[in-house]
Design a protein around this nucleic acid. Structure first.
Length: 140
DNA sequence: GCCAACGTTGGC
DNA sequence: GCCAACGTTGGC
């Protein structure tokens, strides 16, 4: 199966990129939304790449790349919910802010940019993923 | 801190 | 099954 690309939202106050970098492999548990759960349970596979996004941040931005190291599996405590395990790959040289993504041609289709979208696990296309990485590695 | 958008709950 | 009330998310 082709490698897929995702965006995971997190509030840096509860779990930030630095926390992930320190923890190395991290169980992405505690997600309590059915749509997000179904994506993790049914769609996310080992080797998939993840844009790590800080929401409710200053500024809200994609800050790093992570990788799925274990595909969806039930949470130990509450098996109706699912989790994946992720590990950091690398930090972006420059955070790519929400504002920047909004004005970048080619990213209009990202679920993140849809008004009112609160989903914490989102699918992004390969093209979108690579474009964000490009923005994150080149200076303005 | 505000509030729009969305998801969930529970009475009926 | 409908929908009002409530809670949460997250940009601003």
């Amino acid at each position: 199966m082709a490698r897929r690309h995702w965006l995971l939202k997190t509030e840096p106050g509860s779990f930030s990129w630095d926390d992930l970098a320190k923890a190395r492999v991290t169980g992405w548990d505690g997600v309590r939304n059915y749509q997000a759960r179904n994506l993790m349970r049914d769609e996310m596979n080992k080797g998939d790449l993840v844009l790590f996004y800080h929401s409710n941040a200053d500024p809200s931005a994609a800050v790093g790349v992570a990788r799925v190291v274990r595909k969806g599996y039930p949470e130990a405590e509450e098996p109706t919910w699912s989790q994946v395990d992720i590990a950091p790959v690398r930090k972006l040289k420059h955070p790519v802010s929400l504002e920047r993504m909004k004005v970048t041609p080619g990213l209009e289709g990202m679920p993140l940019l849809r008004k009112g979208n609160r989903l914490s696990v989102q699918s992004v296309s390969k093209e979108e993923f690579e474009l964000v990485l490009k923005l994150g590695n080149a200076k303005e």
